[in-house]
Amino acid sequence: MTGSERLESPGPAGGAPMLRVEKLSVRYGQGCPRCLSGDPGSLERNYCPECGAVWALSDVSFEVYPGEVLGIVGESGSGKSTVMNCLYFNLEPTGGRARIGAYDGGSADVFGLSLQEKRHIRNSLLGIVYQNPTNGLKMGFSSIANVAEKLIAAGNRNVGRMEARARDLLGRVSIPSARMKDAPANFSGGMQQRVQIAKALSSNPPVLLLDEVTTGLDLSVQAKVLDLIKGLQRELGISMVLVSHDLGVVRMLADRTVVLLDGRVIETGLTDQILEDPQRPYTQELVHSML
């Protein structure tokens, strides 16, 4: 069985996907006839030797079903964060479409929407936890304000209600109440990631994007954050895209996994299958390197 056959197998939950990404491409640089042909052989890794363009993503497609956790694995530079940044509208893709089940019945390509609509989707249908907490948090503002930021952005203008919601969420991610008014700048890395998670959850989003949530954290702290995510997933049934270069994290959380290499999907399937029976030599290497 090849990777592309696995791609076509229906999701575990069946039904319509919560998130469908089709042929997502991101190019840095002008591009030239050679690399614009789309022929995978035209690039050296993700780089066009002819014009010097970097194809951070080339024709990346995947689905995430309701309540499912989809893992994205791949070495450094393979394009994982680029996928996340496109989905959160931080980065405009060069090509491709994305549909969100909770928006317009999943019929609209969200990349083609107006800035206002994108902001609405970002504030109410998506949550993100960035690889680098400084991208997701205002380090000098109180943790409560950080969580409330998304609520304010969604149009909430009631301080009392926003504070109550923020306290509730920060409590869920085990930030002690005495520290909720502290700035994340004074927190450990694990606490910062938990504040990011609380913020991401503030609008009750049906889709959560997690980029290397545990990278750089102590093992014991990692375990706590992973338990938290697992619990949230079970309890709230949120669909998640979980990016990690750590296969252990993916094994623990992801139902299905996409393997990225040089901006391309080289394998997709059930996480267990991919880890136990990797088809592509690169995936085999990736799996064996962690055994």
Binding site: S142, A148, I152, K181
Partner: peptide
């Protein structure tokens, strides 16, 4: 702008 005011109320 609202966030800045919210933060003042928190503080």
């Amino acid at each position: 702008a609202y966030l800045a005011l919210f933060e003042e109320i928190m503080k």
